[in-house]
Design a protein around this nucleic acid. Structure first.
Lengths: 129, 129
DNA sequence: ACTTATGCTATACCAAAGTATAGCGATATA
DNA sequence: TATATCGCTATACTTTGGTATAGCATAAGT
């Protein structure tokens, strides 16, 4: 039985579940988190590499979002004392495990698209006062 | 193999996957979508019922979000010609199937909390220039 | 000496998201 | 007649998120 089904049947513990969902949403929210995480799934990257790979992101936002992800233990920031300093960003174990969530999202998204396209007329027919 | 793993290995089709993830995010984003969907997972509801069940939501936001969810085929809005009219909101099949995504989120959120709490010191130690 | 790159931060601004408050037309309830 | 409920909408405001532009310290290349 799925956890949400449990949640539906047993109201107990729902607080904990709601918290967990919110945590996940907060980690992913905003315009840039997904592109950043997506890019880091391919391996660790430096600041400028990310800037180049993510179209239209400003350094301000990249800096801000990376800090945010670091605070939430999604990425680690490692400083190497080369000259000049080299800094690398890498997904943590938690960060990497987000792929299960992303998989679920991909699955739902693809299925939903199919359904919606299939029922296009029905959707348009929706009753309105 | 997970779909994201495929995505990582085969860059082909990643566009489709990105679209799918964005669809899912868009369906869930904002402050009120989750509470509304969560509430409707228990069964169909009328406007005032939702308003009562979701603390602090204003009718403006409830109206707006329901319309949004309807446009995205997550809920249906059915008008009964009683006097005065009765209107019921209910999750579509797609809407209901969001529980798989929510399950993944619950799973990740719970695990992440455990990890972060476990590594609290390590997180604090993170190197900073 | 001059340009380029790295890894950012500061300031100012703008647009989207959300809040607060009021009200409406219809009907039911006292 | 007065008040309350339903299912909203309108207007104005605030807060948050994101953009644009500039700049800085360090150092490597030419």
């Amino acid at each position: 039985m799925s956890r949400i089904s449990e949640l539906v049947k047993v109201k107990k513990c729902s607080g904990e579940f709601v918290l967990a969902v919110n945590d996940t949403m907060n980690v992913l929210n905003g315009k840039w988190k997904l592109p950043i995480i997506g890019s880091l799934l391919y391996g660790k990257k430096r600041f400028k590499e990310l800037e180049r790979e993510i179209p239209k992101i400003t350094p301000r936002m990249l800096s801000k979002e990376l800090k945010d992800l670091e605070v939430n233990s999604i990425v680690t920031r490692t400083v190497y004392n080369t000259t000049p300093v080299t800094i690398e960003y890498e997904l943590t174990k938690s960060g990497n495990s987000l792929n299960t969530v992303l998989d679920a999202m991909i699955g739902w998204g693809l299925q939903h698209r199919k359904m919606v396209i299939g029922k296009k007329e029905k959707v348009a027919e929706t009753v309105r006062v």
